[in-house]
Computed example of a mutant assay.
Amino acid sequence: MKTFRSYSEVAACIGQEVAVTDWIEVTQAQVNLFADATGDHQWIHTDPQRAAQGPFGTTIAHGFLTLSLLPRFMEAAFAIEGARMGVNYGLNRVRFPAPVPVGSRLRGRLTLAAAEPAPPDGLQMAWEVTVEREGGDKPVCVAEALVRSYGAPAG
């Protein structure tokens, strides 16, 4: 994990890959809980027997489940000393270039694309996040995530 001591330290990393997280496994239990939370019970996600006959040969995670892992990857990737609060501000771009078969292991690769002041005492960061599947030849999610941090030292 990368620890920043100030917002100026963060800004000095614009254009750099800051972190690659550890692998996490996506389980059928997670997929089923996500389906319950969102109401998206499409068989490709929740019916292993039917999905075995489908295009991927198994159940796959929802794209939005994969996207919902971004805060987990960010928490594992970096910290800003003194920050009292961080918030998700939005997304500029999101793509799901490849499926996530249940049982896959994923990790996040984070590059800081931009950083600018967020009044009164914050910093808005744009993170290019690439979610990789272990053994996969394409990313499973590519997103530009906007995150705001408040309260850390500016300089």
Rank of each mutant, 00 (worst) to 15 (best):
M1R: 14
M1D: 14
T3L: 14
F4Y: 13
F4G: 01
R5V: 00
S6I: 03
S6G: 04
Y7E: 03
E9G: 05
V10N: 00
V10R: 01
V10T: 06
V10C: 01
A11P: 00
A12G: 09
C13D: 11
I14L: 12
Q16W: 10
A19S: 13
A19N: 10
D22C: 06
W23M: 06
T27L: 14
A29E: 15
Q30E: 15
N32R: 11
L33T: 03
F34Q: 01
G39I: 10
H41C: 09
H41T: 08
W43F: 08
T46I: 10
Q49K: 14
R50L: 09
A51F: 00
A52D: 11
G54R: 09
P55L: 03
F56A: 04
G57Y: 07
T58I: 05
T59E: 11
A61S: 13
H62D: 07
S68T: 08
L70W: 12
R72G: 15
F73H: 00
M74Q: 09
E75Q: 15
E75N: 06
E75K: 08
F78G: 00
I80N: 08
E81I: 07
E81L: 09
G82R: 12
G82V: 11
A83L: 13
M85A: 15
G86I: 00
V87S: 15
N88C: 10
Y89K: 13
G90I: 12
L91D: 14
N92I: 06
R93S: 14
V94Q: 11
R95W: 13
F96W: 12
F96S: 07
V100I: 03
P101M: 01
V102D: 05
G103T: 10
G103S: 12
S104H: 00
S104F: 02
L106C: 02
L106P: 02
R107E: 06
R109M: 15
R109W: 14
R109G: 03
T111Y: 02
L112W: 04
A113N: 14
A114M: 10
E116W: 09
P119G: 11
P120C: 09
D121Y: 05
L123C: 08
L123Y: 05
L123N: 02
Q124F: 06
M125C: 11
A126Y: 08
A126D: 13
A126M: 05
E128Q: 14
E128T: 04
V129Q: 00
T130A: 03
V131D: 00
R133Y: 08
G135L: 05
G136W: 05
K138L: 08
P139H: 00
V140D: 00
C141E: 02
V142C: 09
A143P: 11
A143L: 05
A143I: 07
E144C: 10
L146K: 02
S149M: 04
Y150I: 11
Y150E: 08
Y150M: 03
G151M: 06
G151P: 04
P153T: 10
A154F: 06
